[in-house]
Amino acid sequence: MAEAVKNVHVSDEIAIQIIAMNKWYGEFHVLRDINLTVYRGERIVICGPSGSGKSTLIRCINRLEEHQKGDILVDGIPLTNDLKKIDEVRREVGMVFQHFNLFPHLTVLENLTLAPIWVRKMPKKDAEAAAMKYLERVKIPEQAKKYPGQLSGGQQQRVAIARSLCMNPKIMLFDEPTSALDPEMIKEVLEVMVDLAQSGMTMLCVTHEMGFARQVANRVIFMDQGQIIEQNSPKEFFENPKSERTKLFLSQILH
């Protein structure tokens, strides 16, 4: 992998604060006593075995899932049932999904301009200009007029990233962005994400790409059975894991 992301300023301003948060699916306690503070400019990688609640955790941050106990503050806005507050948070938080979730009935350009036009009330011309700028940033401006179904998986995921960026988010959430991709396409998506990290974006990324974690993250969080087991700098995390569960997990994924 290329050299680590450097010189990215992490401020002492808090971007996300999660305090004693618990979540249940019916009877099942999926997230247990989560406490996490994310500072502006941080790149956090969350890893852990499947079913450990890592996706659920980041989906709570833009309220795709609701939590039952504790507090989540995003950019100082508390997440409750208040729909207006939720919309405020969602406008500032971008999300990239495992299965891209592009809108198949709209062209790439329309996918990108939809939210700026309808949520930000941006004039269509400006939204399209901004969209083209982001398509260039993810290196596929020539695909603007195509439909998502005509693109490869890697291209679709890059469009999905560009779609989130069009809303000028302060925070980006990535939910296993490369898990559904063929090996040769993972690289092109990771490159875009590294570029994004370089620009100082606050990022929370659920991924199994440990190379990416080493290169980009300033903090790695390991989750198991709905709890945060361990968090540390990538160097310490990989070279000197503290808990047995982390050691076991790392031994299974790093051959």
Binding site: R90, M95, H99, L102, P104, H105, S164, M167
Partner: peptide
């Protein structure tokens, strides 16, 4: 798919916009 609702919600679209811009055009088709 549920992902369509989620992607639209994550962009900050309100219920009626999610329905009228994303879900219904596909569902009616």
């Amino acid at each position: 798919p549920k992902g369509q609702y989620e992607a639209a919600q994550a962009l900050g679209l309100s219920y009626w916009k999610v329905m009228s811009l994303i879900v219904l055009p596909q569902a009616l088709k």
